[in-house]
Structures are given as C-alpha cells and as structure tokens.
Design a protein around this nucleic acid. Structure first.
Lengths: 339, 339
DNA sequence: ACAGAATATGTTATCGATAACTAAATCATG
DNA sequence: CATGATTTAGTTATCGATAACATATTCTGT
C-alpha cells in the first residue's frame, strides 16, 4: 500500500466487510438489482446507512463508461422563456431516472462549443441544445461521438440528431399576416444586434414576408443598445419613433414589448389608437398588464416535455421522428386595433 | 481480457502508444503539468487532437477522489433574482477553474436534501445553498462530510459553514421605517403561503417591527393563491382591498408589486394618491415602469461574487469570515407618497 | 572534467464500482 | 429421492487517469 489508504469507513468495501459478504453482493444490494436475497439486501442497506455510505458516482460512471447525465445548454437563465422549456424538460428527464446538468452560453456559439467539450469529458448519455445554429465543430463532434442530441426551441429540417421546436419564420409570418389584415402599413421591428439571436431574426424575416406579400417593404429593424430586456424594448421604441413613423411596432419578445408599452404610456402615446404594439411568447406578465399584448403564444413547456421524451426514446434506441415543428398561436390583445 | 476491450482509439493509452511514451507522460502533458519537455508536450498534444482524445473526467475524479465541481442549489430559475446571484457566482467559480452545477428545489427542503444526496455522490469540492433554512439532516450531512458550504441570499449568524447574505428582517425593518416615516398607517403585506418562502416572512416580520414601534399592529399578511408571481401580486392586491382598507401595500417582491400596480391601474385606483405600493429587490423591470416602484435594492450580483470568492477561499483553506450581511438600500420611487 | 542538482520520463498501485464468469445452495418435479 | 433448473453469492479483470516512487538524462559550477 503506497498511498495512505485512509478509507473514510464509508466505501463499499467497508460495508462488505461489516456484512461479511463480497463486494458484488453489496453492489447488487445497493442498486436493487436481483441476485441478492431480500433478507440480505435489507441487512446490507441498513449497514450502509449506518456507515453513512455515499456511493461514488465517479467510479460508477467510469466502470460503465457512461454517466446518467443529460447536458442541457441554454442561452441564459434571465429569461422565463427558457425556464419554461427547461422545467418541462427536467420533469421528464428526472422521471426517467437521469440527471440533467444545465449551463448557459449567453448566445455565444463559442461558449457553447467550449461547454460541450467540458460536458463530453463526463460521458453524458445525451445532449440538449437550444437553437439550431452552432459552431460547425459542434455538429461534427456530436455526430462523431454518436451522442443522442436534441435541438430545441428552434426548428430545423436537418437537425444534428433530432429536433423539437418552433418554426420561427413561420411564426413571424403568422403574426405578420394577422397584423397586415388589420390594415397596418408602417411596421418596424425591434430586436437585438444582428447575429446575437438568430431565432428572433427568423421571426423578423417572417414578418417581413407577410408585409412584402402586400407590397410593403422593407420592415426596418432596430437593434436596441444592450441593457435589460425591458429597457431594450423601451429604448428601441423611442428610437423607432424618432427615426420612423411606424403605425405598428413588433418586438423581439414580450419583455421588450412591455418596455415599449410602458414607454408609450410615459410619453402619453395612446395604444393602440396612435400605434400598435406586438410581442412574442405570451409570457406570464401579459396576464396582468392593463392592456393585454397582442403576441404569439409559444408552447414552451410542451416543447420541453416532448423534446425530453423524444431524446429519452432516442437514448434507448427507440426510433423517433427526426424533426418536429410545434404550432404557435396568435394571441389577439388590446395593443393592436380591432378587426 | 474478459471484456471486449474496444478502445475507441481515443484514450490515454492510445496516445501513449502512438507517441511512444508512457501513460504518465501523456497525463502530464495533457494537464500542462511540469515534468515534460516542451517539445514532447507539443507532440503529444497534437497527437491527442488528431486522435480526437476526450479526457475522462470520471476517471480523473475517481483517481483524485474529488471533482472540480461546485454544486449550487436555487429555489427556482423563473426568478431574475436568483439569476443575478447565480451569474455573479458563476463568473467567479469558473474563473477559478471549477465547474458549477445548478439545480432547483422549488422551495422544498425535502427536494434540497434529495439534491444534496445526489450531488455528494459526485464528490463535489463545495456546495452553495440558497437560504439558511434547511432540513436538519442536510446540515448534519454537510458537516460530517466536511464539505465547504456557502449559504447565500439569506443571512444567519450561525451558518452551516460560511454565509454571505442579506438580513431580510433588517431589510424589512428599514423599508418599514421609511414607510412609517411617510405617515402610512394601515399596511398590508402580500406574500405567498406560510412556510414556502421564509425569507419573505422575515421581511414581513421586519416590516411589522417598524410599524409596531409606532403602535401600529398587526400588519395583516395575505397569501396569494398559486399562480405566476405577477398574477399572485395582482390577485393578492384585489384580496387586500376587499378584506382591509390599506393605505399602503407591501409586496413580497417587485414581481408581485408590478402585478399589484397594474391591477390598481386597471381598477382606476390612483397610486400613490389613494394607496401606496412597495416592492422588494429593485428588479430590472422597475426601470421602465411609468411609475417607479418604491422598493429595496438588493446587492444580488455582488452577493454572488463575494459568496463565490469566500467559498473558493474556504475550499483552499484560506480563512474567511464566517457570516457576512450585505447592506440593502431603500429605493424611493413614485408609488408611495413623498416625504 | 566530474560530483551533485535539476529535469525528464517510466513503473506500479490505486481510486470505487461493475460486468462477466464461476461456484455453491436451494428448489421443483417425475 | 435424484437431477437438472433457479437462485444466490463470490472471483477476477477492468474502466481511465493519477500520485508516489524510481530511474535516466541533462545541467552547473568549480
């Protein structure tokens, strides 16, 4: 014995000795695997408890070359949007006996790649990514490692592995068409700086599609300066009013839209009489606004649950649909004129 | 060789063979530890890259009996409050070369205990808990395992190990005293059901302290029925108006307060003329409200950073203060009458 | 040019748990 | 009651990486 083998009296050997059985018997007993008589199992489990036994997942994962882990990457946690997706997902994952570990990328595909590299060293059984735009190396790495991978939130017909999401361009088109049908003619889109949130840009493109179908184009896009989501909406709104004369303003999300709506209130601009406001996501805050936003309801929780289920199926080699686009729903609120 | 040893051509042995050196040399080279000539190191690293080597953290953690992991438990992720704390913390943790894994407990100390049990099997070097109220077994487990533990958000003079937080009762007292000084006399507190959020209850107690000091008591507490935070605020507000005749309403958090404020707007109740509204946390949304909330600014990000630093110090056996209470600041807004 | 220091590299035992294989004990049935 | 089928339990080799110890090689200063 070279290394000082200071057994903290808590490992599987100690229990085996105490119980007068072999290692394997303890291992089987602790895992609830068959091959141990009920009586012995109880005995062993009680000894384990007494000795304060804490199983070593590292050893287990090493022996099995696989941890019961599913890695989840999100852009950030400041956003109730992803929290909804995540909560749905976690339930399903944990119910199936896996653990999820979550990390954030702050909308950077470089961060995302770095995160994946770290994650892979832990030998996860599955990976969940937000969105479908990634560093090219990421796709390659996942496929060469042959790890079941779910892309969610966004939709792609050609996912890395499987995908459950929303077709954001189509969603943009839907809300765009509704707004067009109300007779609006001078739209502006307020989002974040180009390249940061590609889903939002898809939506903007969908909105532009709808307007260009009736001969209105382009739909100017305004990138709000960095701040909290609420503030970006408020500031973007101000900028929009200064630089254009919009009759309707689309916002990247409800957060932004709330910012815009409040800014309008402050400025004494009447909504929807003088200007229309459109959000995205139908967040919880919408339920308590004096005027409910016209927005798009996204099935976030459902997306999380379905995504997780499909991923789990994939992990267990059950065939699943490669790519699923969930429908969204236009929510008619009080911040746009009535039909 | 019993088991089919299908080396995926990517482990440390393969690299060693390819490079014609021993395992240890590869291990040292990969870790950037001294004991390898610069030339060899480069050679080995390039071979590793070529073979698509992915280090196995499970093996590493097993060999070292310690993973570079810090487990973080939060009540939930729906809340920008904890997101702020977390972001501050993560930066510091990652900067120091550790990884953090986050999980949520949904305000249940039973969940928290279960989380800890799972976490411990991974042999983390440190643990972060939100709040100071836990299952008694949790304290014992952490102390007997001698794992550096940070309790944050809340303050306790007798932490499990170390603590960086806010004295919520004191914070409640401060805002309470300010409100008292404005001449309000019929306060109501709107929170969640008893036992769920103990910090919030501390705040309520602090507020009550302030009022009872001028002979006003009790401060009725209303528990809003479960819903989103915004909605709970809105509904609680309605209940408060029906059951009492408050001249000022304290809310568990700004989320709630925004709900209340919006409800007031809807009902045509003028704030602060007819009623005062007080929040907690000074969240981002406050910056864009038509009327800024009177609230309490909590140093969330700073708390995360300082907490992480202290925990890291603790992990490295550098002595640190056992318990730190960070100061809060009353934010004078437009939702209470002026002095 | 040579002893002792410093640097570079190899050998071996472990970390804790598990799969695969083997062996012993118990059971069922004609 | 004998014998193959079941159940229960033990033995051994591994998983991939690392610390500790041992050895070989290169410097350094006099």
């Amino acid at each position: 014995m070279k290394r000082s083998r200071s057994r903290k009296k808590g490992d599987i050997h100690a229990i085996a000795k105490e119980a007068g059985v072999s290692l394997m018997t303890v291992s089987r007993a602790m895992r609830g695997v068959e091959g141990v008589s009920e009586q012995r199992r109880k005995e062993i489990v009680s000894i384990a408890r007494r000795l304060n036994y804490v199983p070593n997942s590292n050893a287990r994962a090493l022996a099995l070359d696989n941890a019961n882990l599913i890695g989840v990457s999100l852009p950030n946690l400041f956003n109730d949007v992803f929290a909804d997706v995540l909560n749905g997902m976690r339930g399903a994952i944990e119910y199936a006996g896996y653990s999820s570990i979550v990390d954030t990328t702050d909308y950077s595909s470089k961060n995302e790649l770095a995160w994946l590299e770290r994650l892979l060293t832990w030998r996860p059984v599955g990976v969940v990514l937000t969105g479908v735009d990634h560093d090219p190396a990421l796709r390659e790495r996942l496929q060469s490692a042959a790890i079941p991978t779910l892309e969610t939130w966004d939709y792609s017909a050609d996912p890395i592995d499987i995908c459950v999401g929303i077709d954001h361009r189509e969603a943009g088109r839907q809300i765009g068409e509704y707004i067009v049908s109300l007779g609006y003619q001078r739209p502006v889109y307020i989002g974040t700086k180009p390249g940061r949130d590609l889903r939002a840009e898809d939506r903007a493109a969908g909105i532009a599609d709808a307007f260009s179908a009736v001969g209105i184009q382009p739909v100017p896009r305004i990138a709000a300066p960095d701040a909290s989501n609420f503030e970006m909406g408020a500031r973007g709104f101000t900028v929009a009013l200064e630089g254009y004369a919009p009759d309707v303003v689309f916002f990247l999300s409800d957060h932004y839209a709330v910012g815009g709506l409040m800014a309008a209130t402050k400025m004494g601009i009447s909504v929807p009489d003088q200007i229309g406001i459109v959000g995205y996501n139908d967040l919880a805050i919408n339920a308590i606004l004096p005027q409910r936003l016209t927005t798009v309801r996204t099935p976030r929780r459902q997306m999380g649950i379905m995504g997780a289920r499909n991923l789990l199926a994939r992990i267990n080699n059950v065939p699943v649909e490669k790519a699923i686009a969930l429908p969204v729903e236009v929510v008619i609120g009080d911040t746009t004129r009535q039909q």
